[in-house]
Design a protein around this nucleic acid. Sequence first.
DNA 1: CAAGATTGATAGATCAATCTTA
DNA 2: TAAGATTGATCTATCAATCTTG
Lengths: 149, 149
Amino acid sequence: LDEEEQATWRAWLAMTARLQAHLNQRLQRDAGLTLADYDVLVPLSEAPDSRLRMFALADRLAWERSRLSHQLSRMQRRGLVAREDCEDDRRGAYVVLTGAGRTAIEQAAPAHVEAVRSLVFDGLDPTQMEALRSFSATVLRRLDAASQS
Amino acid sequence: LDEEEQATWRAWLAMTARLQAHLNQRLQRDAGLTLADYDVLVPLSEAPDSRLRMFALADRLAWERSRLSHQLSRMQRRGLVAREDCEDDRRGAYVVLTGAGRTAIEQAAPAHVEAVRSLVFDGLDPTQMEALRSFSATVLRRLDAASQS
DNA sequence: CAAGATTGATAGATCAATCTTA
DNA sequence: TAAGATTGATCTATCAATCTTG
């Protein structure tokens, strides 16, 4: 890495770490949710019947199964989600958003989205946004390629 | 967030999570180091006399003191760093890179840097790199502003 | 009291091993 | 045997409380 690449890389690392920490603290303070909670709640709130199969949720989050299972156990204890047996495939399980879970995500979302907008997207022109998106897509493609080999 | 912003944001989140996981696993497999170990070792290896004050290292990493303290305890157990009392300020402490620590970072760095280059920087044209850098800088500035208020 | 640093408790992430059903 | 999911062990991160010196 040349000097410019190194500076870019370090700035990017510092930014991502601080941005995640900031959003996480805000969310926790305002709504009692962590970013991980939020990540789980969003797909559930958008899913038909507020429920998803474990593997579908894990795939969508790109999480390992065991991570999701532990996370759901904690969220279940707090009443945000519930587990239900799957009738079609008796190995399987559904995760279901509870009423409390829906309330939590609906109350947390506006402030969180506003924070993301003001920190990240405000004043980002179309060119920069396209650069950001294509950059993310490119790196994701390369990660997929690297995982296969 | 409109649809395009949401897609950009989700792609970015997925990319950062997977990139960090990938780099971490690679580093761990190839060199027995975590990304956190690496982050700590780099500034130490660049510091005069291979030593830094705790607070200086914490500031540079943008880590909380307690996180750094715990991390160093683990690295100290593995022989990668040592602690030394500070004579000027008797509250203070130095962290010093050991010989084993220097060996570890020097052996780990080339493959890690190459992974970053091939996943992130390869095929990034000057315009995109400048966009990435200015984007990181802007968000960092806003985070600073948000922390103050 | 403030600054530098550490500690202990708790929550979260990762890995390997396990259990059940297809 | 493989797929869906859970568990337990271990490592890491975060928060509040503490200790010591300026």
